[in-house]
Design a protein around this nucleic acid. Structure first.
Lengths: 197, 197
DNA sequence: TGTACATCAGTGAACGCGCGTTCACTGATGTAC
DNA sequence: TGTACATCAGTGAACGCGCGTTCACTGATGTAC
């Protein structure tokens, strides 16, 4: 004698998580309230605790979901060196800079994640490692640990550059930082390749 | 018929700004309340508005003060290439990673600054440019604009790497990211030097 | 030199507000008959 | 096939709390006499 289709609640939960991904990136973790997060999903605040244990729980879940999506996107785009260079150019594009809500979660929230509950940090670490390990096979096929560190360091460059470009109020300066970031990222990738041969 | 020494209030104001620098970096901008900020300076919340127009005003002032201090420190340390390399190694050290309150303001707050009031962002931009311009003369003496972008892109790498190392829960992985970040930063500096000659 | 006083940096209670969280209730829906 | 019902996803008001901000007041201090 069950009620509502079995998947109904799961669908709603996914809708909340998806909307929260955008809202958290836009307003920050502290800046996004539970009532707003639920309104974004077309619900009221009261239903929240039927889906999540706490706001921290949703934050950790939403961050992990965002990174999983980013990982899938990366797997599809980056199959070789050309794809990797393409990714760097898109990541450090003015379009990505101007689309905080739809963009990279790390760039929008990394320093807030570093201040978050340890459970959130652990899920973030796991998720970011999944991304790094995919790139590691491209960067250093014979050295998984080294490739992992190289991939993470490349991410760090991309994240820091995008964040800085977003904080600068001078538009042409912001553009110049993005351009220099692309040049630096590609230089590091080339260096890697040369060193291997 | 004035009262209290002329400098008394200025001294107190500087004490609030100094303490706020540490507290904001530790707890985040949204995470640090006015009452806490004042308690850190040995005062109560009521006195706050005799010193600042608003919390935003203090935040913008404290961020600018922190960066001015960082700029002074940089001017003293980085007079040549050796000083620059030394700075990179110290910036990406485990000690800096573990000292958020005493460390780099950009690494602690950059994505929150990017979401802050425009006045805060403008003061941040001005302050960070003062730092970049000092490095620019070292990186590319004959090309101020290019040197500025290079300096900012180097900062971005340092900031992103420190932030990522702080968010990862795996200690040895965090260390590896710092080490790889140093290697990448130094490689870019060497490349720069070689290209010029 | 000693005292009365004007100044104003700082106090601490109070303001309205939005936060995260709880809970008694509603009402649309799939099932049983 | 049509109706009565049990289920439970979702509602919306309320909870205590801490936020940023305001304000009437206090009391230590430099000055005037």
């Amino acid at each position: 004698v069950a009620r509502y289709g079995k998947k109904h609640k799961d669908v709603t939960r996914q809708r909340i998580i998806e909307a929260a991904g955008r809202r958290l990136k836009r307003d920050g973790i502290d800046g996004a309230g539970v009532a707003t997060l639920m309104a974004d999903a077309g619900l009221t605040n009261g239903a929240f605790y039927a889906h999540f244990e706490s706001k921290d729980d949703l934050v950790a879940t939403a961050v992990a979901a965002q990174l999983r999506e980013q990982c899938d996107h990366l797997r599809a785009q980056v199959a070789n060196r050309a794809g990797l260079e393409q990714m760097v150019r898109e990541y450090l594009s003015p379009e990505h800079r101007d689309d905080v809500a739809g963009g990279c979660t790390s760039a929008a929230l990394l320093d807030e994640i570093a201040r978050s509950a340890e459970a959130t940090q652990r899920r973030y670490t796991d998720s970011v490692l999944a991304i790094a390990d995919h790139l590691a096979t491209l960067l250093a096929p014979q050295d998984p640990d080294g490739g992992r560190a190289q991939a993470l360091a490349l991410f760090a460059l991309l994240i820091g550059t995008l964040q800085l470009s977003r904080a600068l109020t001078d538009a042409s300066l912001s553009d110049a930082v993005l351009a220099q970031g692309i040049e630096n990222a590609l230089a590091l990738l080339r260096r890697r390749r040369t060193a291997r041969r």
